[in-house]
């Protein structure tokens, strides 16, 4: 069964078609890149997949759950249980330490568990940084805290919107290496990026243009 199934999804903001008739699915363990120029609808699409926004028409199913008719309370629950999100701007809570930022995700999911949270930070190479506040961390380190936070509740699907967009080359490499590791461990990743070299790390690249799927390609081959 597909982890994600999108059928005939469209999103309109007033008269603007941010997304039009999108259909595709993602299998467990896959890494999919969503590419396209600015304004092509990448973030909009990721928001639909992350259940933070509702499509105007069409259907999004996560792990077999059809979501279009669900209440926002239920959608929040599914997001909490199934999806881990990583943002370009990190979005850490500034007055909580790295460890506590990870524990916040546990708190709203089930139970804060300091050991497990510390292990997750260790997993992203930050064992020595758990007591630091976000502002005491470099951009790359902050983004790794976000990845640890996204992973902490064992999501079925990791969504990342330009996770390296605010990072320098060195940190970009560290973060991308981490995603590759996660992928090799079997995590399912959907990553928005407009950098070709980042997109090429995925098994499948979906290119958007004016809200439509323009091209799907796997390494060495263009499918559409």
């Amino acid at each position: 069964m597909s982890i994600l199934e999108i059928t005939g999804m469209s999103k309109k903001y007033g008269s603007l078609h941010a997304l039009q008739d999108i259909t595709f699915s993602v299998e467990p363990g896959e890494w999919v890149s969503i590419m396209g120029s600015s304004g092509s609808g990448k973030s909009t699409m990721l928001n639909m997949i992350g259940l933070m926004d509702k499509p105007s028409t069409g259907e999004v199913s996560i792990d077999g759950i059809v979501t279009s008719s669900l209440s926002s309370k239920k959608l929040t629950e599914i997001r909490r249980d199934k999806i881990g999100l990583v943002f370009q701007q990190f979005h850490l809570i500034p007055h909580l330490t790295a460890l506590e930022n990870v524990m916040v995700a546990q708190y709203y999911h089930s139970m804060p568990d300091e050991k497990e949270a510390a292990a997750a930070l260790g997993r992203v190479g930050l064992e020595g940084r758990s007591r630091h506040l976000p502002r005491q961390l470099s951009g790359g380190e902050q983004q790794r805290v976000c990845i640890a936070r996204a992973l902490i509740n064992y999501p079925a699907l990791i969504l990342a919107d330009e996770p390296t967009g605010n990072l320098d080359e060195t940190n970009e490499k560290i973060v991308l290496d981490l995603f590759q590791e996660l992928h090799s461990e079997g995590h399912t990743i959907i990553m928005v990026t407009h950098a070709p070299e980042v997109g090429e790390l995925a098994e499948r690249q979906i290119r958007l243009e004016y809200g439509k799927i323009r091209e799907i390609r796997v390494p060495g081959k263009i499918l559409i």
């Binding site: 992350g50 933070m52 309370k73 929040t76 997001r79 909490r80 249980d81 916040v104 999911h109 936070r149």
Partner: peptide, 11 residues
């Protein structure tokens, strides 16, 4: 912060 907590599953 509130938006983020909502993303993380806060009702």
């Amino acid at each position: 912060e509130i938006a983020l907590k909502k993303v993380l599953g806060a009702q």
